[in-house]
Write a protein that binds this DNA or RNA. Structure first.
Lengths: 339, 339
DNA sequence: CAACTTTTGGCAATCGCTTGCCGCCTGTTG
DNA sequence: CAACAGGCGGCAAGCGATTGCCAAAAGTTG
């Protein structure tokens, strides 16, 4: 069966090799290695010694096959190249490693069907899934959650534990900030229609604006990339706005570039507020006023919620919802409204 | 054995279920699904129909165990949060998916021992490894290459196929560019000592500078992060340089910030050239003149070289070395030397 | 139509590890 | 000293696929 491994390499040691050398049964080796307190200390030490001498590495395949656990957690993000997810990925990577899991990163390409398909395939080969900014419908999401342990990030569901970033909270701050600069109306450069947080942000803006007598206009949808920034910038200019809040920093940075191209000064002619405080928001020109949140921590929290779900005993009370705090980071892209 | 899966979920279908429904043996199902031309068309269609009705998903675990192939390729990068690797990751992700492989992303934390340890563990559970900017010694690297299919990126080895980015080539361009602006000496803000490309870049600079009668000074080592930029900037100022080439853009961007803090104007007081042309290099302030290369493509090429290694028959001539072209992207961070 | 080659599908042995169940050997207890 | 409880280790049955080997069926050929 096992064909000669491409890269030569002598056969890797198995628990059987260890068992033979130690003069015990394979079951004892297995237990010594993955259930230490189940075997006598002397036996265990001997087995451990032999195992390390042989450079033994357990086969995750075999282990998974017989135990039903894979030790793998998948992290699904809509777009690997979006720096926002970098921070999430970093957080999950870190925390998963600490919990002894391996991270499987998948880019779902902002596509619902890729996401759905991936989820289905992963059901077999992972112990759980972290779903960042899912593009699924509520129905699809709850189906998925019923089939496999799941935690969502930036997407609320009743069925699965969720980590939310309290952007709406900070939106209020952003509006106050803008109002204090004399802005009376604000434009929202919207993100993808299928994005749940896009709706959420717009709702928050609309509501907060109404509450303080400002007017709010929604533009878009725009793809959440720097490239789409040009279109968003032009539309914003067309709307005659003095202040704009962008769906995310990527879009905002793109808009910044377009404004510069067109000779529109920021913040003198127009103020712009981003969202996420990604890598780059602090050194673009001008540095972006944005809604900042502990994204990396969100990733870590999501992992711990998933761990709790996987092991309800040790995991303690499985929290169903975590909301990460946000705050407005004021930099140089916002200023007084022009008269 | 198989304990009740945490998230309820009825047992997943296996080839056995399909075999029963189709009235054939499991071996036939297996063949129909993974070796289609081996079974009669009618039988195959029937099996495929049943499989899809059952929402059958093969167990990668079981498949891997018996076939010896896992369908997983690991990608090791020193630091997930470095945008340079984003592009590589994106390239590998894309190409691996196209080749039917799953990408396992691992952050080795710029640490040799983590890298070594990961490599060892991965030997069992992956079909091959893509090693970006390895921190291993030549010896360790050749050991690793002899044990598992491997392709290195940005690190030359005799033992494994390699994808190199021709930074030295562009360094010459950078020096010419600087010389044309009247710069007579240049400082190199160096990267990590264990980085092979760091040595390579310095050598190229030293040599190219000598050839055109410029003087070159090396500073550092600095961690390849924006944070270390401050120290690098101060040292550069201390060295009285008029032009500096940074190990990478991250460092360069950090230096930009520090220069601004200290009231040093770029490029009037000092010119700075980065390396990699990462996300952000085009919109920082001022936009960074940098050495640009098709990083994402490097990732794709690396994957195809690995594929060729895994399947020498279909793979064609296994190229041992690919060099990605580079060019100097001139933006606003370089200008005439101050008199 | 016999002899022979292909196709096609089944049998059963793995792959490496986990785990339920059982029995032996101690040490403890009444 | 008999009875019993635990600790410790072994047996063997899987987990879900793949695949070498073989035989039956179907197709070819002279």
């Amino acid at each position: 069966m096992n064909p000669e491994t491409p890269s030569s390499a002598e056969r890797m040691p198995t628990i059987r090799d260890i068992a033979e050398l130690a003069g015990v049964a394979t079951s004892t080796v297995s237990r010594a290695l993955s259930n230490p307190q189940r075997v006598n200390a002397r036996t265990r030490e001997k087995i451990e010694r032999i195992a390390s001498e042989l450079h033994y590495v357990p086969s995750t395949q075999a282990r998974g096959l017989s135990s039903g656990r894979t030790g793998v957690i998948a992290v699904l993000v809509p777009d690997i190249t979006n720096p926002f997810y970098f921070d999430i990925i970093r957080g999950t990577q870190y925390q998963l490693k600490a919990s002894g899991y391996t991270q499987l990163l998948v880019d779902t390409e902002e596509a619902t069907d890729v996401e759905l398909d991936t989820l289905r395939k992963l059901r077999r080969s992972t112990d759980g899934v972290l779903l960042a900014a899912s593009r699924l419908t509520d129905q699809q999401l709850s189906d998925a959650a019923s089939r496999q342990p799941l935690v969502t990030i930036n997407r609320a569901t009743a069925e699965a534990p969720t980590v939310l970033i309290d952007t709406p909270g900070a939106v209020v701050q952003a509006l106050e900030h803008l109002a204090s600069f004399g802005h009376r109306s604000v434009v929202y450069a919207g993100g993808p229609t299928s994005s749940w947080s896009n709706h959420r942000r717009w709702k928050a803006i609309e509501e907060a604006a109404a509450k303080r007598g400002m007017s709010a206009t929604r533009l878009g949808p725009y793809a959440p990339t720097a490239l789409s920034g040009a279109a968003a910038a032009d539309a914003t200019l067309g709307a005659g706005a003095t202040a704009v809040i962008a769906f995310n920093d990527l879009l905002a940075i793109g808009m910044l570039g377009r404004f510069r191209e067109r000779g529109v000064r920021v913040p003198e002619d127009i103020s712009i507020v981003g969202c996420d405080d990604i890598f780059g928001a602090d050194f673009c020109n001008p540095p972006l006023t944005t809604i900042s949140s502990p994204i990396e921590q969100a990733g870590r929290v999501a992992v711990s919620m998933l761990m709790a779900q996987l092991d309800p005993i040790r995991g303690g009370t499985p929290r169903k919802l975590a909301v990460m705090p946000t705050h407005l980071k004021i930099r140089a892209s916002t200023g007084p409204a022009r008269a």
